[in-house]
């Protein structure tokens, strides 16, 4: 298993509750803070409550280990500021 590859269902850690394991790789999402306008859509639509607003209202990945790459945040980002590192 390479260091950054997403751990699939057949990974060696069956106890992981998520489809992806972020302990060795990059965080689940990349957020371009220069393009983000703090519209709150990703924070409100995320079903796993991964994001928390920082003091400007922009999202930070507070619970990154809960992210299951459902694509809702970057599909609904109006400023193209979120990209996934895994999908």
């Amino acid at each position: 298993m390479t260091d950054a590859s997403p751990a699939g269902p057949s990974a060696s850690k069956p106890a992981a509750k998520n489809k992806y394991d972020y302990t060795n790789g990059p965080p689940p999402l990349s957020i371009n803070m220069a393009w983000c306008k703090a519209c709150n859509i990703c924070i409100a639509l995320c079903p796993k409550q991964v994001f928390e607003p920082d003091r400007d209202g922009k999202p930070i990945q507070a619970r990154a280990e809960d992210c299951n790459q459902c694509t809702i945040c970057w599909v609904h980002c109006p400023d193209l500021a979120i990209t996934s590192n895994y999908k």
Binding site: A34, W35, C36, K37, A38, C39, N40, I41, W74, V75, H76, C77, P78, D79, L80, A81
Partner: peptide, 23 residues
């Protein structure tokens, strides 16, 4: 897109036009 040209976009924060653009 032309990332060095015009971003961040001209629309209001949360405008749905950006969602259409990415789709």
């Amino acid at each position: 897109i032309r990332p060095r040209k015009k971003f961040p976009s001209v629309w209001c924060a949360g405008c749905g036009n950006g969602i259409v653009m990415s789709a």
